[in-house]
Amino acid sequence: MTEQIEAQGKRSGVNLVGLTKMDYKGNPSTLCQGCGHNSISSQIIAACFELNVHPEEVVKFSGIGCSSKSAYYFLNRSFGFNGLHGRMPSLATGALFADYTLKGLGVSGDGDTASIGLGQFKHLLRRNMKLVYIIENNGVYGLTKGQFSATADQGLELKSHGVNPYMPVDIAWEALIGHATFVARSFAGDPKQVKELIKAALNHNGVAVLDIISPCVTFNNIDQATQSYVWGKDHETALHELSFVPRAEEILVEYNENEVKEVQLHDGSTILLKKLGRDYDPTDRSAAITILEESNACQCLITGLIYINPNQPSMVDMYNLTEKPLNRLTEVELRPKRETLLELNNTF
């Protein structure tokens, strides 16, 4: 019953699994024109298309808010569940146990993750559930019309709510100290970087946090706000230029060796990081902490792959599950034999 999305324009370009980009589209967005979230949706589509992932192999999750609505606007052929405010991590955790072969993709916002969702977010991290967790971070509540979120800058002034007196929650920082095994920050206005990070995240065997600054064109696009387009464009400093190389592809390294850092992921695919003037090693957790602190101090938006640990087992790995996905097991495998109950009765 998957809804057919009207093809707009020509069906061109087929990927390795025989699908066109149209096969990855979602329903038309009902978010505001120019919303950063729409740009991220497009990059999710592009990333999955380029990775040659069947949409049926991806499961979408979201919470509540503008960002969470966006899960309906991409990957129409993927199952999706729009859950409760801040409680998508638990929903995704339970669901992904049903079939460990699937790729989980969660979309949340700053209101969803940094307020009610902070607890579930942190616990998702410590369990290292294999899930891409995108936070479309705009510092403001959109659907309820423009209240401050917990990531809003201190001192930010919004039209109908005055000045924000509180310190912000820094999501990348929370992810890092919460033992996330993949932490990235990006800016919706930098689609190439967003796409490469999503591709790398989808191949990471663990939780992958992408804190993407995604300006709200309606309620928080004041030039001096951290989550605005103007501020983002002016202050973005990429740690590195990155590209993701799937395992199947032949790796053609075009950079000089000493300029390129290669991070191999669990499944054999790699992330190539091209240095941009600074010698940054994203597998070094203390370096990651330092760079985030520097970023706060210098009031700049450091983007890129901040931290990765590809070697930690994911949550599902810890449960010694059957090779056949749990949700395909049948009665023979699920109901113990009659004799076992007779034995048990004898023990009472």
């Binding site: 339970g94 669901a95 949700n327």
Partner: peptide
């Protein structure tokens, strides 16, 4: 949340 997710997942 986990139980609902798992039930939904079959």
């Amino acid at each position: 949340g986990m139980a609902i997710g798992a039930g939904w997942g079959g």
